[in-house]
Each structure stands twice: as structure tokens, then as C-alpha cells.
Design a protein around this nucleic acid. Structure first.
Lengths: 344, 344
DNA sequence: TTGTAGGCGTTATCAC
DNA sequence: GTGATAACGCCTACAA
């Protein structure tokens, strides 16, 4: 059953007593074939249940209408949404999508990229893993003529197309909002600083403090608090400080903010009056916790579309010297109950 | 840049003054090549930055180590989790994954499947779209020698491998739980009945009623309530009945249950005391709503692994007459506050 | 152990 | 408009 023979253009040709090249012509562009034979060919192709072999076609044409995507995790809302956005566009363009997850492992990321190179994909769209080391595998891909787009988590030193969220600006806005609400001691839960996005979010936090003349208090900055559990842990530590914070910006994720919320509730602190909480990502649940969580929306789905469009509109051409473009998407602060101090 | 030439086994052969076939042998199995030349070949392959062309290799071998996945939506928790599970296994086996979303459109589903056929994938894993019509496209795929696994939403009349949740049993359990909690008038929010999963869930509901000697009240059964909005709408109607239900089983999804919860809260009904609410899927948010929502966990990630393993363990072989296997996974009722009547 | 030759299914480039 | 032929890059009998 496995190597069962499929009908090829030769089978069609033989049946009609014509040449395979005519069949090919009829079935692809339809040019240089008389309308009569074209119809005949199409008809018998359907009869014989002919399906093109894309492998052969792509090999011959030296190009593969396929795009590879590498993300840390497929089943994380942000990435799932981005992928859905990408797929939406690539589908319209008749392209296929090969999807891999690096599982936050650099080693695995390298393997994924190599597989995609082997597959001769025409473009690789990637958000790098947490323990990213260097970009040799990505340089390799580019050397092989594969287009490269980085998004969200990018290696800054690689000169490629990039689609980013303006994390710094969004964070600054969020923290400024906290300040405007009268919070005085604002803590930060930060993520791995080797990832650009977390560095930027921290920078935004610092910028807001500076802008409003607030001091930076190192004891209020907690590293690596990017899961619900780690967020809860960090929060416990923070709230047990002699001089505890009155607001926490969980810059890593909404899950982390959820951890904050749970610990605060357990300790009997009123959110937002005694403790302000702000998350990041606008996960679906932030709307329905009590109180609902102020967060930042990243327009993930439309980000995916932007990425794909970038390829089709700017990189598809054969131009040799395309100047890599950096597209920045401005996220949106969504103010909800967890930080609206005076409205309750 | 696009059609830039990559190094092939011929380039390596030429450089070493040997034959391409030796290079091929050295780089694949390593058999029938002297250790000395093998090492030489591997070394220069690395030097020349050689990457195998999987297109050519697969074409030649007549098989493609690629599996295609078709789901209604990539960015829906259940499907994203299943895909992550599938990817986990296929990655280990050195297989690639091509992913498409049908967007609940039958027409698009057909196109996806056809593309996968063209790509000569060795297996198609599919959960059918909401407006599924008939299985001709899937039969086509099988005729071409492509393995087929359906999961979750399946076309019952197609004789294929299937991986399912035991929806009926889970629903029966959920409704029995409601009955045990003393609810007397239990309403059902049901989904499109052309999808097996929703039919089964309804069957489970009916079975539970019957088992406990409860009457079936048609006015308490609401069709097509499978989003938050539709769930809310149906709930409004239900709660405005002269003889309103005292529990609602949102068999379609947790989102629908969320709609129920919102309307009930708005109407000032106490959940669970005045209205019991049960959802389906164990979305992350069900744990953190207030009250938390009783729901059913489908083990989605491990379902993905089961599916992939099914392929590698049962279908990979060339046996002609493999009897399609149906694997049923027992979901788990997760009892939370929204249905625990006497504990508050 | 190594080389030769043919073919996987398609398309591009010639002729006619 | 149609046919013959070569080539895409790789693999695999078979021969040497």
C-alpha cells in the first residue's frame, strides 16, 4: 500500500497518445496547448485521479512554496495566535507551513532550522529559544538563500527582517499608569535578560521611574519570575519585605500576574487598593479574574499576518540587496480593575 | 540570491576526486565505504556547508518523512495542545509536520487535504470542520496510500484509525454529578449535531437523565450555543422561562459556560446554590473564575502523543490489511465550585 | 570498496 | 501546438 503507484503525467500522456510535456503544460499554465487537448487532458487527469507530485515539481523548479516556522512552544497563546495569523496569509498565497517547536532548547532549535534548510523552505520565521546562544544556524540558512524573519524574541545582532512589539514603550506606559494611580513602590517581575523582550520591558520600567523622578529600588526587582508558580514565589518574598511594594508589574506574562493575584488574595490584601497588579499579553483569562487584570495586548494574530505579508511583499523578489526592515508594532495597554485604585 | 547554488554531493565528489555515489553512501548509512574516505567526505561536507536536499531524497525514495495535520483552528487551546503533543513525538522520530487550519470551512479543508496529498505526506491527522460534508477528499488521500488518523471530531462512516474522547461517558458523569448535587431541572447547551462529539455529549446528557428517572424537557435544550456570546444568549432565554432550570450543562465549551456564568451573575443568581454550571474542556481560566467552573479535562497534549504513537507503532509498517484501531481516551470530570451546592 | 548508470516526476528548452 | 530530451539532486542496483 505504501509504495503504491500514483498516476503521473506519463500515465495521462500514454492514455491519450500524446507527450508528457503537453500534459505538464496543460496542467500548469495552460499555455501552448490547444484548448481541445487541454480539456481532454484535464478530464482524464480527473478520471485517473491525478495529483501533482510537489516534491518533483519543487525539485525541478528549484524552489519550494513552503515557509518554516520555529517557535518555543506551539501551545502558548501568543505563538498559537501568531501562527494562526501567518497561516491565514500563507494559505491565501498557496504556500505551506512547516511548524516546529524548540521547547526553549537551543540545541533543538538548531536541529529544527537545519531540517528546514534541508526541506528547502523559502523562508524561515523564528522566535528564538530562551537559552539562545549564537546565530550560526540562522546565518547558515541565509547563506543557503533562505529568507529569514525574526519576530518578538529576536537576536539583535543578526541583520535580518524583524517584527517586534515595542515592549519598552508599552512597559513605560504601564508603569506610568501605575504611577498616575498613586502607587509609590512599584515592583518588577522580570524574565531572562538574555532575551531582548525582557530587557526591553525592564528598560521601559526603569524609564518610567526615571521620568517621574522615582528611585530604582533593587530589592523590588525580581528575576526569572515568568510562570505562575515563580510569580507567586517572588510575590511572597516581595510582600514579606519590611517595606513592601504597593504595586507589582509582572512584565513576563499574565500567568505570572495571576500568581501575584493569588498570593495577594491569600494574604488578604485588597487588589487594587492595597496592591496594584499589571500583567503582560492579554491572555483571555485576564478579563474574567476578580479583579480583572490590567495588561498589555500584543495584537498577536495581526502580528502573524504582518510577518507573512512582509515576506510576500518585500522579500519574495529576487533582489539581492534588500535592506532588512524592522517593523514595530505598538502594543496597547488595557486598563482593568487590578490597577484602578480610586474607582472602587 | 534565491537560486543561489547550494553544494551537492557532486560538488563534494568532485573536490575529492571520487564518485557521487560514494558520497551518498558515506552521508546516509555509512555502509560500503572505507572508514578513511567516509571521514574525509564528512569533513569536506562540513567545510562546504553541505545540506541534504530532502526534496530530491524523498522523491527518489518515494516517501516523505512528513505528517500533515488539519485542524479547524490552530489557536484554540485544545488543538494547540494536541498539535504540541503530536510534534513532541514526530520530532523524536525525525519527522516533519505540515500544519493547516480549515477555519471550520469544508471547502478549505478539502484544499488543505489536497495540498497534503500533493506533498506526498505519509500520514494525515485530521479533526474535521464544522460544516463537514462528505469524506471524498479523505478517501482520495487513502487511495494514494496515505495513512489517515481522525481525532476528536471524526467522520464516523469513514473506516480509519480514530482517537477519541469518550464524550458520552464524560457527559453522563457530569450530569450525574449535577443530579447528585440535587439539581432537578438541568438544561443542556448543545453544539452542531453534525459533529459526532456534540451528538455524543448530548447522548450522555440524555443517558444520565434516563438513568436517574428524570424527564427530558425539550425546552431546556438549546442548540448551537458554542461561543461565549451564544451561551449567554441561550442562558438569558433559559433563565427567563416561567419554570427556569436550576443547572446548566454547557456541553460545547468552557467559553459557553463562561457566558452562562456572566448572565447568571448579572441576574443576581447565586452560583452554585441557585444555578449549577458545568463546562467542557478544562480551559485554563475555569480554575480562576469566581466561582471556579466545574468542567471536563480532555488530556489534549497526551492525546496528541497518543495519535502520533499510533502512527509510528501501528501504521508505519507496510502491512496491507491493518485493521483500523479506535483509541478512546477517558476524559476526567473536574469538580469545582460552580456545582458544589452544599459546600458553600 | 568504489564507479557506472538509470530513474524518481516534473518542467524548461529546444526543435519541428 | 506538439514532441523529444535534458536536468533538478539524490539513491541504488549492478558491475568492476
Amino acid at each position: 500500500m505504501k509504495n503504491q503507484k500514483r498516476t503521473t503525467i506519463y500515465d495521462i500522456a500514454k492514455k491519450l497518445n500524446i507527450n508528457a510535456s503537453s500534459v505538464s503544460r496543460a496542467l500548469t499554465n495552460g499555455m501552448n496547448v490547444s484548448e481541445a487537448t487541454r480539456q481532454l487532458i484535464v478530464k482524464t487527469a480527473k478520471e485517473l485521479n491525478y495529483k501533482q507530485n510537489s516534491l518533483a515539481s519543487n525539485l525541478r523548479k528549484g524552489q519550494n512554496q513552503t515557509i518554516g516556522v520555529v517557535v518555543p512552544r506551539i501551545n502558548q497563546n501568543f505563538f498559537a495566535d501568531v501562527i494562526a495569523g501567518i497561516e491565514e496569509v500563507t494559505y491565501q498565497e498557496g504556500y505551506n507551513l512547516i511548524i516546529c517547536q524548540s521547547n526553549e532548547s537551543y540545541e533543538r532549535e538548531v536541529k529544527c532550522v537545519n531540517t528546514l534548510i534541508n526541506q528547502h523552505v523559502s523562508c524561515i520565521i523564528i522566535s528564538i529559544s530562551a537559552d539562545f546562544e549564537d546565530g550560526q544556524h540562522l546565518k547558515n540558512a541565509m547563506d543557503q538563500g533562505i529568507r529569514l524573519i525574526q519576530f518578538d524574541r529576536v537576536a539583535d545582532n543578526l541583520d535580518t527582517f524583524k517584527v517586534l512589539n515595542d515592549n519598552e514603550q508599552a512597559s513605560e506606559e504601564a508603569v506610568s499608569h501605575l504611577i498616575a494611580q498613586g502607587y509609590k513602590r512599584i515592583a518588577l517581575l522580570e524574565g531572562p535578560q538574555n532575551l531582548n523582550i525582557f530587557k526591553q520591558r525592564k528598560a521601559g520600567y526603569l524609564a518610567a521611574l526615571k521620568k517621574h523622578g522615582y528611585p530604582v529600588l533593587p530589592e523590588l526587582i525580581k528575576e526569572n519570575a515568568w510562570t505562575k508558580e515563580l510569580g507567586a514565589e517572588a510575590t511572597s518574598a516581595l510582600l514579606n519585605l519590611p517595606d513592601r511594594p504597593d504595586a507589582i508589574f509582572a512584565s513576563t506574562s499574565d500567568f505570572s500576574a495571576l500568581g501575584v493575584l493569588e498570593v495577594a488574595t491569600k494574604m488578604g490584601l485588597n487588589v487594587p487598593n492595597e496592591l496594584g497588579v499589571c500583567g503582560y499579553s492579554n491572555e483571555a483569562f485576564t478579563e474574567i479574574t476578580s479583579p480583572s487584570i490590567t495588561t498589555i495586548d500584543q495584537y498577536s494574530m495581526s502580528m502573524g499576518k504582518t510577518i507573512a505579508n512582509l515576506y510576500f511583499q518585500n522579500m519574495l523578489s529576487d533582489q539581492v540587496n534588500v535592506v532588512p526592515k524592522i517593523v514595530s508594532i505598538k502594543p496597547k495597554l488595557i486598563i482593568r480593575s487590578s490597577t484602578q485604585r480610586y474607582s472602587i
